[in-house]
Design a protein around this nucleic acid. Sequence first.
DNA 1: TTGAAAGCGCTAACAA
DNA 2: TTGTTAGCGCTTTCAA
Lengths: 358, 358
Amino acid sequence: MKPVSKTFWLFPWRQMSVTLKDIARKVGKSVTTVSRALHDYDDVSPETKALVRQAASELGYIPNILAQRLQKQRTDTLGFILPTFGPRFSDPFFSEFLAGIGNKATELGYDILVATRPPGEEELRAYRDIVQSYRVDGFILVRTRRNDCRIQYLLETGFPFVAFGRTENTGPYPYVDEDGEYGMRLVVRHLARLGHRRIAFLGAPENLMFAHCRKQGYIHGMEEAGLPTDPSLITTGDLTQRDGYEKTLQLLDTPSPPTAIAASNDLMALGAISAAQSRGLHVGADIAITGFDNIPLAETSHPPLTTVHQPIYQIGQMVCEMLVGIITGAHPHPESVLLKPSLIVRESCGTQATAPAN
Amino acid sequence: MKPVSKTFWLFPWRQMSVTLKDIARKVGKSVTTVSRALHDYDDVSPETKALVRQAASELGYIPNILAQRLQKQRTDTLGFILPTFGPRFSDPFFSEFLAGIGNKATELGYDILVATRPPGEEELRAYRDIVQSYRVDGFILVRTRRNDCRIQYLLETGFPFVAFGRTENTGPYPYVDEDGEYGMRLVVRHLARLGHRRIAFLGAPENLMFAHCRKQGYIHGMEEAGLPTDPSLITTGDLTQRDGYEKTLQLLDTPSPPTAIAASNDLMALGAISAAQSRGLHVGADIAITGFDNIPLAETSHPPLTTVHQPIYQIGQMVCEMLVGIITGAHPHPESVLLKPSLIVRESCGTQATAPAN
DNA sequence: TTGAAAGCGCTAACAA
DNA sequence: TTGTTAGCGCTTTCAA
């Protein structure tokens, strides 16, 4: 009989807690032997193994992860700190990405440790804390910045991580990214072919690497098409639908408004659609609007949104898999991946520029 | 000089790892004393405390969480298993809720362990595993079901948890919930006052508690208004925008279509708006459409969506706070909370039914 | 006011 | 093939 400990009264669910010692006692072997039997070491006799396993399952043994972790000095946990500000935060990007890494992590036997921090000092401190207190075996980064202190720190310390996104200020590191420059060029090229000449760009803060790339794509796309880039057609927003809405109203209210608007992400594009509609424009006919990301909403918006596909879920899975490869040593130096995106043409860009200004 | 261990070569970032022993050696005290000094025990002399703290900060001491956890048998981690199926998962609900619990947890010194599992067997097994291997100190549940095996299991084992949502098949447990029945009644009442008689309902699977409540609200609201409930006006969807879109097309293509559509959530309502618009209807004039949740998108959709507000972020915070109260013993038996929602009237429901069918 | 010692549950080097 | 022993780094009696 196992004595009822004080612990039990405080934590009734621990009642069933069975340790190696209990098994050892039951089968009359040492704790060591039991441990090795359960790990299928080959210096344990088959009989003993059978005996031990039998006993383990009878007693309902479940290893105490805490003890295993202390011993092995690993946590079987991956860290994921969402760079986010306040409350009203609901970018579909994150939930889909999280599902990707979450499911893959589960498959590989890892947990995900999630925290949220606004980019900056506090965020970096969180990384430091977590690294130094051994809370995770590696990090997954998203929304990389052109000058990214997180990456710098992690590279300096040699701590395992994989990022979704490139950066500019460091040496090589493992990442998965989509070629946003190329994607946005596809968009502009498409719009130009439809006859648009005044193509506006709804950008995002350029310290965000992906925003920078997409803007580059816009600029290069315009050059490619032999179109002038008018600074008054380029805005910088915060990636929210609301912002896309407001910036679009401003654009539409200028003396010579654009005939097409290329947004840096779908959310802003959806806002742009609303704005155009509220000005009585027929999106896809009076004005072309495009997004970037191909979030689920893009497909069923009205009109459906022309956009660039970004397989966020799959990227999450890839990132997770790469990170685990690094941690376990199976693939200490994985190759980074740069995905070529494809354009998804829907109705929001129409088929022909109806009112080519200029 | 600390010897360079094998560990260092494998894990370079552990180089700086400083233990209590290091501090003890430096100040010429025992590990015990150092530990107590750092925890500010009052049986340590002020001088010693100062000395120890000084040394600790000089050496850059950071406690090894793994060791602390083993000792204390707690993980300082809260579990959160998202009930979700495959890839294309991007409900704004989850990211906002996660931000709520994430930020609050951080504030309280807890980590969040996230996993994703499709509801059912596998999900329950995940709960069992995590409970029995001491991986978290408590769970946060969302999307409660009318008959919820997770809650049943956690109640049976006495494991700490707090749920966002009520359930039907168990005894009392700590939860935060919004009165969806009431909220939906507000919607129907509003629509009825505007003159609508044929009000359709876009429902969700009724094993989901919140979906059930909202449907009840719809039914009661109709009764209250003295309107008949026509089964052909009631659909069951999967909460996605796509589904709202399709179900709405079906409704509109019947001989006597509804003049108003009350959706169980905003996503479906947005789909409904798209569907109505693709049939050439002017939402807010030709047809009224309402949502539920007040996600950020609702505000900037075109037209802006009439909906019921649900403070998801704050609910996340409350749930988190309650759970920590239970775990620490500060509030072992918190009172459950039922929030009264409020209606947010925007343009999607118009101001008057223009074509009140009979 | 301090320190020695035990132990959380597990793993692994070394002996037998 | 098995057991002894020694930790992982920390907390906490208990005795000095």
